[in-house]
């Protein structure tokens, strides 16, 4: 059952990497900014070590993992902590997901609907994040001003979905840092314009040629004492990852 918790985190990480990468065209300046933010890490490969902390009023739980990603289609994650789950490995290869349990030496295939699960306890599903919403294409953009977040000057932009767009949000507000186009803050509102969740980013660093925030925090609006914290312990971009890493065979052989 713990595996399901980890799987949720795996999909969560996939979505974080993927949510910044969808198609769009450029014409207006604001659109251009959002396009740059969305496509910042598109198609890139990365090798990262990260830590996810789930914070609740009465407890916290930590998890550490190593991940390899190549664009949006290939992703591999190896759990290093907690010890109980050490060695459990998840693989996403195009439309298929497997996990490997070292204790019984078995690969288990997951149903595609796993990608359909709600994300962060919201109405937003992973699939919505991955496929449908293009922040630059499906919304009308209005500049609300400039604000400083974590010491960085950001464009504060309001996004209202086009009438025909297949978007579940009523409104999104973005704070995009003007130097490297990192999304430093994002607030998503439902169709009644109620705040659903907030993401904030901090600790911008240059990591192998990419300037990115190393820390991200996610807050559900209706549960003020809860948050999920994601931190990169290390991350390298544009690494040449052998293609055989993203295979069910390699999953069983990882030494990390």
């Amino acid at each position: 059952m713990q595996k399901r918790y980890i799987l949720e985190k795996f999909i969560f990480i996939l979505c974080i990497t993927i949510s910044f990468s969808t198609n769009a065209q450029t014409s207006v300046n604001l659109k251009d900014i959002i396009y740059k933010a969305e496509n910042k890490l598109r198609g890139k490969s990365s090798v990262a070590e990260m830590k996810i902390t789930t914070i609740r009023p009465k407890y916290t739980r930590e998890m550490e993992m190593k991940s390899w990603t190549q664009g949006e289609d290939l992703s591999l994650m190896y759990i290093t902590k907690p010890v109980r789950d050490k060695g459990t490995t998840y693989l996403k290869r195009y439309k298929e997901i497997w996990y490997y349990l070292p204790s019984i030496e078995r690969n288990i295939k997951m149903p595609p609907s796993m990608m359909n699960q709600s994300w962060m306890g919201t109405d937003l599903s992973n699939d919505d994040l991955v496929k449908k919403t293009s922040l630059s294409k499906d919304f009308e953009h209005t500049l609300l001003g400039e604000e400083t977040i974590d010491g960085h000057t950001c464009y504060h932009i309001k996004l209202i979905p086009h009438e025909n767009a297949d978007v579940i949000w009523g409104k999104i507000e973005l704070w995009i840092e003007n130097n490297h186009y990192n999304v430093m803050k994002q607030q998503s509102f439902d169709e009644d314009m109620e705040l659903v969740n907030t993401m904030t980013a901090s600790n911008i660093q240059e990591m192998s040629g990419e300037t990115i925030p190393l820390k991200m925090e996610f807050f559900p609006a209706d549960k003020p004492q809860q948050k999920t914290l994601m931190e990169y312990i290390s991350i390298e971009f544009n690494v040449k990852i052998p293609t055989h890493y993203f295979t069910t065979q390699y999953m069983t052989k990882i030494k990390a």
């Binding site: 399901r4 997951m110 149903p111 609907s113 359909n116 699960q117 709600s118």
Partner: peptide, 10 residues
Amino acid sequence: LDYSLRNGTY
């Protein structure tokens, strides 16, 4: 057959 609902129920 297996399926995962949106709320995470398997």
